[in-house]
């Protein structure tokens, strides 16, 4: 029986096989997932914004520029090896457009860009991502296989 562990907004969790990490209803937020296929451990962070940007940090899992490093630290505690870590991510949508007003901040896109550059900075390969567009996503991350199941309402479900 695998446990499904819920990762809330601005939350960060790690798990061992055979557990599943999940987060529901990602809009402009990003679910970043790390996996060590040998140790069969994984972690997920529900990132909301790209950078702390001088804001008092509060909960570091909220920001892409803090969460990736923290997620690595946490997953290493479960015996993962940094050199084996690989990443997947999903989310980063633009859910609303106001007629005649281009979205200035593009939070979703910038979240994805920041996660990507953070992963690069730590030397962790991003195997695959499902980001952008205008759809909400619910994701389940299998820490045994590293499969990331992405469910949307109008574009079905896929495993990446």
């Amino acid at each position: 029986m695998n446990n499904v562990i819920n990762v809330g907004m601005a939350d960060l969790k790690t798990a061992r096989t055979p557990d599943i990490l999940m987060t529901a209803g990602l809009g402009s937020c990003i679910g970043v997932c790390l996996h060590d296929p040998v140790q069969k451990v994984g972690g997920m962070a529900h990132v909301m914004l790209p950078t702390t940007n001088g804001n008092s940090v509060g909960n570091p899992a909220k920001y892409a520029d803090q969460a990736v490093g923290l997620l690595i630290e946490e997953i290493l505690k479960l015996g993962a090896s940094k050199s084996r870590l690989r990443a997947k991510m999903a989310g980063g949508s633009q859910m609303f457009t106001f007629p005649g007003k281009p979205p200035v901040l593009r939070i979703g896109d910038r979240n994805a860009e920041t996660v990507e550059s953070e992963l690069k900075r730590f030397g962790i390969p991003l195997l695959v991502s499902d980001v952008g567009g205008g759809v909400g996503r619910t994701i389940h991350f299998n820490v045994t296989t590293g499969d990331l199941r992405v469910r949307t309402i109008n574009h079905g479900e896929k495993v990446i």
């Binding site: 529901a24 402009s28 914004l49 205008g134 996503r137």
Partner: peptide, 26 residues
């Protein structure tokens, strides 16, 4: 303002509304 409509997962829409200005409180 002019109204905007989204038809999708409620949580995804709520997060987009909350994060629109690029900041969010705890």
């Amino acid at each position: 303002s002019v109204p905007a409509l989204a038809i999708d997962m409620a949580g995804a829409i709520l997060d987009a509304v909350l994060l629109e200005e690029g900041t969010i409180d705890e």
